[in-house]
């Protein structure tokens, strides 16, 4: 884990110049400097211990207020029981203004107003939590895009060549032969049914988690492209 983090640091340092990148990921090298503001109460990294505040190893993906050996306010423990889990978004909101997220938190810190500073800080802290490659259920390091369904969506004419490429991802589970065991065949589906079903997964109206996830990151055009491709597949 440590060496992985060092590698990330090295990679990040070498990429720091490239445009656009810091908007999504944050710079852990800069984040280490921002962390100085937290250091009087929090430790992180090898051998980190609970001090005034809890240590921050493994913070991503953990339930708020869940370390039995740390000191928390009642408010934070209650928030955890109500389902507050530390993700990129919740940590970001908490660090921006602790009292806005958890009233009466013990964290008497006025917050970090700069969005970039928070991003950098979170990128730094991320290196001390589970990585998705080691534990797939670890918190994502980037955010997905979400689009709302629009009535005009059904009118989109899909590009079936693009659909063929995208469909290769479906074929890992849905067999080209159209076989129906355990996982349904999807060959030859009418375009409209296909588009409606995919958007229902995307909006999490249909329950299946794999399909919610797969559909969740397809754009309207991509769903149309897939529909165009599968319609003609025998």
């Amino acid at each position: 884990m440590r060496s992985h983090f060092q590698l990330v640091l090295a990679l990040v340092a070498s990429l720091a110049a490239s445009a656009g990148w810091s908007e999504t990921l944050g710079d852990p090298v800069k984040g280490a400097k921002v962390f100085k503001k937290c250091q009087s109460c929090h430790q992180v990294g090898e051998g980190a211990k609970n001090r005034v505040g809890p240590h921050l190893n493994g913070i991503f993906g953990s339930k708020a207020g869940s370390d039995p050996t740390a000191k928390y306010s009642k408010g934070l423990i209650r928030a955890g029981d109500d389902g507050l889990v530390w993700t990129h978004e919740t940590l970001d909101a908490f660090i921006e203004n602790p009292k806005a997220l958890v009233s009466k938190t013990r964290m008497s810190f006025r917050g970090i107003k700069g969005a970039d500073d928070r991003l950098d800080l979170l990128a730094y802290l991320r290196g001390f939590s589970d990585e998705p490659s080691n534990i797939p259920e670890a918190e994502p390091t980037a955010q997905g895009n979400y689009h709302n369904l629009d009535p005009a969506i059904l009118a989109i004419v899909g590009d079936s060549e693009y659909g063929e490429y995208l469909a290769s991802e479906c074929m890992t589970c849905h067999q080209t032969s159209g076989a129906n065991d355990g996982i349904p065949g999807i060959n030859g589906w009418p375009t409209e049914d296909f588009v409606v079903a995919m958007h229902a997964y995307k909006q999490k109206l249909r329950p299946h988690p794999v399909m919610q996830m797969m559909a969740g990151r397809l754009s309207d055009e991509e769903i149309a492209a897939l529909a165009a491709y599968f319609k003609d597949l025998e």
Binding site: L11, V12, L15, W21, L25, P132, P136, E137, A138, P140, T141, A142, Q143, G144, M213, G216, R217
Partner: peptide
């Protein structure tokens, strides 16, 4: 930088 997790 890498292949990055979106959603899970």
């Amino acid at each position: 930088e890498k292949i990055s997790k979106v959603d899970g």
